[in-house]
């Protein structure tokens, strides 16, 4: 049973367009893509950010890249110069997502395997 941060199994980058922030996330090991597809849902990402992201979170899947693009509305406190945040351009939002803790990582993967058997 392992407790991992998302950063241990994924990498990504974040950016801004106005008050919308997008974070792309890719599985470090392609084998983890299916697990991430199950685990890293838009709902879970929205819940993770809590107050930081006021609007909806949409997830787009890009299986050929073993990755996802999360588009988060009203995520940057108004965005650009309106925002009073230190990181008004959302450059550190990817790392904020990457600190998500995944409990029982091995178990979840085993669970997947069991289903396949």
């Amino acid at each position: 049973m392992a407790r991992v941060y998302l950063k241990d199994i994924a990498h990504g980058r974040s950016g801004d367009k106005g008050d919308t922030c997008n974070i792309c996330v890719f599985a470090r090991d392609p084998k983890d893509y299916d697990f991430l597809r199950e685990y890293l849902t838009a709902e879970r990402v929205k819940e993770h950010f809590g107050d930081m992201v006021k609007g909806e979170v949409i997830r787009y899947e890009v299986p050929t890249l073993k990755g996802f693009n999360f588009v988060m509305k009203h995520a940057l406190d108004g965005g650009a110069t309106i925002s009073l945040r230190q990181d008004n351009l959302g450059k550190s939002m990817a790392s904020a997502l990457m600190r998500m803790v995944i409990d029982d990582y091995e178990n979840e993967k085993k669970g997947d395997k069991n289903e396949n058997q």
Partner: peptide, 11 residues
């Protein structure tokens, strides 16, 4: 990969 979806919304 990290650049190709940078500041893209719906891929």
């Amino acid at each position: 990969k990290e650049q190709i979806l940078y500041e893209v919304h719906d891929p």
